[in-house]
C-alpha cells in the first residue's frame, strides 16, 4: 500500500450499536493524490457506511483512517462530501446552498459568488441559481449538492451515488464534468455507485464491496483521458462484464449472510 496516498483506510471495521454483524468488516484501501476510485456494491452492503468512515463522520471500531498522513479524529476538514440525499437547506436559494461551505466560515465575497455561479453553470443550472430547492427537480437538487461539495476546491471528494437520480444523458454529461474538474484541480475522489458502467468509466480503480468486505480491488485497464465514445468500445464492455461477474460471485444481496 503506498504510504503517501491521499486517503488511507487501514483495517477499518465498524459495527452499528445493537447490530450483531459488522457493517464494515475490515477494509484496506488507499487513494493516491488525484486518483478517482469507485466503489461498487449492492444496496445495503455498507458503501455509505464506508464513505462516512472515510469522511470522519463515524469513527471506526478498529483500524485507522488517514488523510494526508494524519489520522482522522473527527469530520475531515477540506474534504468535499456529496451525500446520498441532496440535503439542501430549503430556505436558501440554490446559489446560497452552494455557498454554504463558505458562508459558514466567513462572509462570501464577489469571487466566491462568481465561483459558485460558474459551478452551477457547469452543472447546467446557470438559470436556476436564485431558485429554492423546492422549485428544483430531484436531479437538479443533486447537481446543486455536487456544486456545493466542489465550491471549496477540496483535494478529496467523497461522493455517495451523486448521479443516481439523473437520466442517462445528464448523467454522462456530469460524469465528464466531474472527470474534467478532478483532472484540472488534481482532486482525488472516492465515488460510490451501484452502476457498473459508471464505475468503469470514472474509476482509475474499482473496488467491489459485499457484506462489509472489499471482495475486489483492481485497476481499470482503460486509457486516460477517456472520450465519451469509449463506452461503446469492446474493451469497455469487457471491463463491465468482468466487474459484473465479480459482483455476481459475491455474497447474496438480501440480508447480510456472511
Amino acid at each position: 500500500m503506498p504510504s503517501d496516498a491521499h486517503l488511507i483506510l487501514d483495517g477499518v471495521r465498524y459495527r452499528f450499536p445493537g447490530d450483531p454483524l459488522e457493517t464494515v468488516a475490515g477494509v484496506d484501501w488507499a487513494i493516491p493524490r488525484g486518483a478517482i476510485h469507485c466503489l461498487l456494491g449492492r444496496s445495503g452492503c455498507g458503501k455509505t457506511t464506508l464513505l462516512k468512515l472515510a469522511a470522519g463522520l463515524i469513527v471506526p471500531d478498529e483500524g485507522r483512517v488517514r488523510i494526508d498522513g494524519k489520522p482522522l479524529r473527527g469530520p475531515a476538514p477540506g474534504v468535499g462530501v456529496v451525500f446520498q440525499a441532496p440535503t439542501l437547506l430549503a430556505w436558501l436559494s440554490a446559489l446560497d446552498n452552494v455557498l454554504l461551505p463558505v458562508s459558514l466560515k466567513r462572509r462570501p465575497q464577489a469571487p466566491d459568488r462568481a465561483a459558485a455561479r460558474d459551478l452551477l453553470a457547469a452543472m447546467g443550472l446557470g438559470d436556476l441559481a436564485e431558485r429554492r430547492p423546492a422549485a428544483l427537480s430531484g436531479g437538479q437538487q443533486s447537481r446543486v449538492a455536487m456544486a456545493r461539495a466542489l465550491v471549496t476546491e477540496p483535494g478529496l471528494l467523497l461522493l455517495d451515488e451523486p448521479f443516481a437520480a439523473l437520466d442517462a444523458l445528464t448523467r454522462e454529461e456530469l460524469q465528464d464534468d466531474l472527470l474534467r474538474l478532478c483532472a484540472s484541480r488534481g482532486t482525488a475522489a472516492l465515488f460510490v455507485t451501484h452502476d457498473i458502467a459508471e464505475a468503469a468509466y470514472l474509476g482509475d480503480r474499482v473496488g467491489v464491496m459485499a457484506a462489509g468486505r472489499l471482495v475486489h480491488d483492481g485497476a481499470v485497464p482503460l486509457p486516460r483521458p477517456r472520450p465519451p465514445g469509449i463506452r461503446y468500445d469492446p474493451a469497455f464492455g469487457a471491463v463491465c462484464r468482468s466487474l459484473r461477474a465479480i459482483m455476481d460471485g459475491a455474497a447474496p444481496a438480501i440480508g447480510r449472510a456472511a
Binding site: 462516512k52 469522511a55 463522520l57 473527527g74 469530520p75 475531515a76 476538514p77 474534504v79 462530501v81 451525500f83 440525499a85 440535503t87 437547506l89 430549503a90 430556505w91 454554504l100 461551505p101 459558514l104 466560515k105
Partner: peptide, 25 residues
C-alpha cells in the same frame, strides 16, 4: 440527521449549527 451531518462535515460549531440550521428549520 443528514443535514446535521452536513454541518458537521463543514466544520460548523454548535452556535453556527443552531443559528444556521436548527433554528431556521
Amino acid at each position: 440527521p443528514a443535514q446535521r451531518e452536513l454541518f458537521r462535515m463543514l466544520g460548523a460549531g454548535r452556535v453556527r449549527t443552531l443559528l444556521r440550521l436548527k433554528l431556521p428549520s
